[in-house]
Design a protein around this nucleic acid. Structure first.
Length: 394
DNA sequence: GCCGATGTCTGCATGAAATC
DNA sequence: GATTTCATGCAGACATCGGC
């Protein structure tokens, strides 16, 4: 059983780490430099102690969803805004193995006009079981988790921590906004990190912040020295991540429901996705809009969809425009196929293929081969007597 | 370094239709 | 009836990316 094997590995690694920690503790007094600042726990003003080493604080913001109905593309039918749980974790690293611990978690819930964000902070490793027990009710009762890359990073990491501590965790649905962000803004932005989406799409600016890669070091510094002056920045970073997550969710939700998409969104990509996912009306709307704005990919997707739906004339209109405006090889070949197989007119098909040759496009070897084969076949057909041309051979 | 979702590319199977 | 040709859809391989 691969899962059992992995858990065994994780347990062994954890036991090894605990042994090393005990040896270190036995061999030396903890170093406490003069400039270490406040002792452990001493800098936690504003936090409520809810366990021996677990602290909690709560913030309230304006609800970015503001009563909008939820899109079924983002959240399963039947769930309401109150069932969502936005979450983000800060951890001691990226590896995801037994050595990586989540020490800070932000949980955001929508309640009426407000977005309530609860943060839980683990002040030292031995408190992990109680820290996880504090998290479990919220994670377990949420109808839908919402995260940024949490499906790959945060959720498996927490699941591993619960398993290692012999605690159970049952969660339900999970909506990961990273995949939406890539679908929509990858073409325009390239980089789809949450920070880039905040700046370029949501128009949010953070004040003083820490980079993600700095977080483990700051926490380890805090554990080693009893305090780190940069720890509050980590708390703030975590808080802002969940707040941005809720804002991004609200903007996506509005766009899927028919509203405007922020930033230079890839409407062709979203339209194609919607067509495959049962959102035909909105999908076609977005593809047409994007095609009007000059996106060739939107035209290709639109034409193919119309062709599959048997709307040949509408498909041909799209392809003719692609040929006229963009010299699209794809559209010319589609027109040739339609002429040969549907209109039974190999002469017209040949005309489309010859037109492409006349453009002198730099073609990939494969495309060049295919085009040449099509042309040769159509020339054979076209050279036959007219009465033998009406039924194109296959 | 890990992992899951996604997009792209390629090869293959299938079915339909025409040809020999 | 066997063979050929074409369009289409699917599966698998592979690369990319973001989280701390």
């Amino acid at each position: 059983d691969p899962l059992a094997a992995r858990l065994k590995l994780l347990r062994n690694a954890l036991q090894q780490r605990e042994r090393e920690q005990k040896e270190t503790e036995a061999s030396e007094e903890p170093e406490r430099p003069a400039d270490a600042g406040e002792p452990a726990g001493g800098g936690l003003q504003g936090w409520e102690q809810v366990g021996e080493l677990t602290y909690r604080r709560v913030f309230s913001f304006e609800n970015p969803l503001a009563g909008e109905p939820l899109s079924e593309h983002l959240v399963p039918r039947g769930l309401s805004a109150g069932d969502l749980l936005f979450f983000d974790t800060e951890t001691t690293g990226l590896s995801g193995g037994a050595g990586t611990v989540a020490f800070l978690v932000a949980l955001g819930r929508l309640a009426g006009e407000r977005l309530e964000v609860e943060q839980l902070f683990l002040a030292d490793y031995p408190g992990e079981p109680e820290f996880l027990r504090s998290l479990a009710p919220a994670l377990g009762s949420a109808g839908q988790l919402v995260s940024y890359n949490g499906r790959t990073f945060d959720a498996p990491l927490l699941a591993g921590r619960f398993a290692l501590n012999r605690l159970s965790l049952q969660t339900r649905g999970h909506s990961d906004l990273l995949y939406w962000a890539r679908r929509l803004w990858k073409r325009a932005l390239g980089d789809c990190s949450l920070g880039s989406i905040e700046r370029e799409v949501l128009g949010l600016e953070r004040g003083q912040d820490v980079a993600g890669w700095e977080v483990p070091g700051i926490y380890l510094d805090y554990l080693r020295r009893g305090w780190s002056p940069r720890l509050p920045l980590v708390w703030e970073h975590n808080l802002q991540d969940v707040r941005s997550l809720a804002v991004l969710f609200a903007r996506l939700n509005a766009a899927l429901g028919g509203g405007e998409l922020p930033g230079r969104a890839d409407l062709a990509s979203l339209g194609s996705w919607l067509l495959k996912s049962g959102g035909e009306q909105r999908g076609l709307e977005l593809l047409r809009l994007s095609f009007e704005e000059g996106d060739e990919r939107a035209g290709r997707a639109l034409g193919l969809h119309l062709k599959r739906a048997g709307r040949w004339d509408e498909a041909a209109q799209v392809w003719r425009r692609l040929v006229a405006d963009r010299r699209s090889l794809f559209a010319a070949v589609e027109l040739a196929k339609q002429a040969e197989h549907r209109l039974r007119d190999p002469l017209e098909a040949l005309e489309w293929v010859r037109q492409v040759a006349g453009w002198g496009l730099p073609l990939e070897p494969r495309s060049r081969r295919e085009l040449a084969a099509r042309r040769a076949r159509l020339e054979r057909l076209a050279s036959r007597p007219a009465e033998r041309r009406t039924q194109a051979p296959k």
